[in-house]
């Protein structure tokens, strides 16, 4: 029995998303295992980012349920929550396909903003902090420590006070992941984290994701096009095509699934062997 059916952190049940007449996702169900790295793959326009937007509350699903099982045994129905509550209460964090950093703020500030909710409570919703009461000062130092920890982890500690917009593309990607981690998530959703990275950066990303999973008890879902990344780091792969799940299993299983090969090659299922022969697979 695999983790995703045994101990799921997120259950996606019969998810359907329609935009006007267009059905972007149709009756999609899959589980994300606790502590797994789950990859969501599929050809362009398969609806992967739409799934992410439903999970993180940016879209309201037309139908279906999204159940988040916190490690504390709390359950959250994500489709009923507003986007910021999903991060704040259900502990789901995300990154974006087109990186969304606070470019005019420093790298450290980016990580401080991510700890907003904790600091707001510590500052008694600003009033205590303004008057210098309570443990705000200490919490603030703790938050800086957390930020420092992640900056060391992603090797950007020397540039902590530089504006985020000044970073290279690969550094921005890692900073966005670190920022999402600063919200203290139990499920981390990464939208194409390896896009545009060179092989060295790609390797660093793999290490970072492995580290996050191991040291922080965070499950990871990622959308990825780079198959080498997917096959290497993921425990579980879900394949989408035209908003429908066509395969679901271990990387080994998915790799050999004729439906997947057909979808990627763009042919009907029955013709796969024929085409494979032609291209010499």
């Amino acid at each position: 029995m695999n983790t995703w059916d045994n101990n799921p952190v997120l259950k996606v049940e019969h998810l359907t998303m329609r935009f006007g007449g267009l059905t972007a996702i149709n009756d999609l169900s899959f589980n994300v295992g606790r502590g797994d790295i789950t990859a969501l793959i599929g050809p362009n326009g398969a609806g992967k980012t739409t799934v992410f937007n439903c999970i993180t509350g940016f879209y309201k699903p037309t139908e279906g349920r999204l159940v988040m099982n916190r490690s504390s045994d709390e359950k959250h129905l994500l489709e009923r929550m507003s986007d910021f509550k999903i991060t704040a209460d259900a502990k789901v964090a995300r990154t974006f396909q087109n990186i969304r950093l606070f470019g005019g703020m420093t790298i450290l500030e980016n990580l401080m903003v991510a700890q907003h909710n904790r600091l707001m409570i510590a500052s008694n919703w600003t009033i205590g902090g303004l008057l210098g009461l309570g443990g705000y000062r200490k919490s603030n130092l703790d938050a800086i420590e957390t930020a420092r920890y992640w900056l060391e982890r992603i090797e950007l500690i020397d540039r902590a006070d530089a504006p985020a917009a000044d970073l290279s593309y690969g550094d921005q990607r890692r900073l966005e992941i670190a920022r999402a981690m600063c919200t203290g998530p139990e499920l981390l959703c990464l939208d194409e984290p390896a896009a545009g990275l060179n092989p060295k950066e790609s390797l660093e990303l793999n290490n970072l994701l492995q580290y996050i999973r191991k040291e922080h008890d965070t499950s990871v879902v990622l959308i990825e096009h780079d198959m080498s990344v997917v096959m290497e780091i993921s425990d579980h792969v879900v394949v989408l095509d035209y908003g429908v799940k066509i395969s679901d299993g271990t990387p080994e299983f998915v790799k050999n699934d004729p439906h997947v090969i057909a979808a990627y090659l763009g042919v009907e299922d029955g013709e796969v062997e024929l085409v494979e022969e032609e291209v010499g697979l």
């Binding site: 993180t56 910021f84 969304r100 903003v113 907003h116």
Partner: peptide, 9 residues
């Protein structure tokens, strides 16, 4: 949008 993704109301 990034703010919302970080749990800020």
């Amino acid at each position: 949008i990034a703010c919302r993704a970080l749990g800020i109301n």
